[in-house]
């Protein structure tokens, strides 16, 4: 298990991490959710001993990434954000290389990656540089897993990857979790939070909230309303003008609206919209999403 206590790290004037504390349990699929520049990569690099923190501490199964960095490095599989396979080496050469470097063989732990690797095996002699995004990602994951790490650290594995490959990737992670591997994954996509056991929402080097996605939504104490109409732009501008509104955000084909305290009144909003020449707007109360929570917490 992982314990992170009040980590701070500064680069020049920028506070990349500003007192970050999280706890990850054994066998958990833990998500670090936040936009670019939130501090996700810095936190990961400190955990896997590639960076030294300015202050604060971290423990991985009791090991200190600063003092015991050699031991820490033995228990992790790491997939950096811009990984970064050797593009001029073929699929099988990449995999064999990482297996050997980590002191094992492809055969020894093949059962662990079989599920993922068999999908790209037909192309095993193709150079990694000539693979599609989804295939690269599968290869990278196989390479990070081949030495059977106790902890898998994945830095934005799904960024820039299409929705299909993303979904497949999360299914793979679920299966790995079932094998007992603890997984720490970061992502800028809020909708992926729901796929984790627990998440930490992070922005500007600070943790906004840590909990299971369900509990985060549960604890969101404001009612959220979805408003929809044909002309979204017009609807958006008019809702903004409504006096009792606290926030208006487009969500796909709907607007998500919260009211300021004491003025939760969708009927009144409907009347307001009618008076503005939008007679058919559809208003209904909905369950908030992680993204609603994130925006509420970050403002």
């Amino acid at each position: 298990m992982i314990e992170v206590n009040q980590l701070c790290k500064q680069f020049g004037k920028v506070k990349a991490l500003n007192g970050v504390s999280i706890q990850v349990n054994e066998g958990e699929l833990y998500g670090l959710i936040g936009p670019d520049g939130a501090g996700k990569t810095t936190l990961f690099r400190i955990l896997i001993s590639l960076l030294l923190p300015d202050s604060g501490s971290a423990r991985l199964w009791g090991l200190d990434p600063v003092a015991d960095f050699k031991k820490v490095r033995q228990i992790i599989g790491y997939m950096p954000g811009k990984f970064s396979l050797y593009e001029d080496l073929s699929i099988i050469e990449n995999l064999t290389f990482f297996a050997t470097v980590f002191g094992t063989t492809v055969e020894e732990n093949y059962y662990l990656i079989e599920d993922i690797f068999k999908q790209i095996e037909p192309f095993k002699n193709r150079p990694a540089g000539k693979l599609s995004g989804g295939m690269k990602q599968k290869l990278a994951l196989s390479c990070a897993l081949i030495h059977k790490p106790r902890l898998l650290v994945l830095d934005e594995p799904t960024t820039g990857v299409d929705a299909v490959s993303r979904q497949e990737f999360w299914e793979m992670l679920k299966r790995l979790k079932a094998q007992g591997i603890t997984i720490l994954v970061s992502t800028p996509y809020m909708d992926e939070a729901g796929l984790c056991d627990r998440v930490a929402l992070i922005q500007n080097g600070k943790i906004l909230e840590t909990n299971s996605p369900e509990d985060i939504i549960e604890r969101f104490n404001k009612p959220v309303f979805a408003v929809s109409d044909n002309n979204m732009y017009q609807l958006l501008n008019n809702c903004r003008q409504y006096p009792g509104v606290a926030s208006v955000y487009p969500f796909g084909e709907e607007l998500h609206i919260t009211f300021s305290e004491g003025s939760v009144n969708p009927v009144h909003l409907k009347e307001f919209l009618v008076s503005k020449g939008i007679p058919d707007a559809n208003i209904k109360q909905i369950q908030p999403t992680i993204e609603d929570c994130f925006m509420e917490l970050s403002t």
């Binding site: 896997i48 001993s49 790491y78 950096p80 990482f98 990070a144």
Partner: peptide, 9 residues
Amino acid sequence: GSMEVLLIS
């Protein structure tokens, strides 16, 4: 970025 992986290996 592959140096990161080599370093932790």
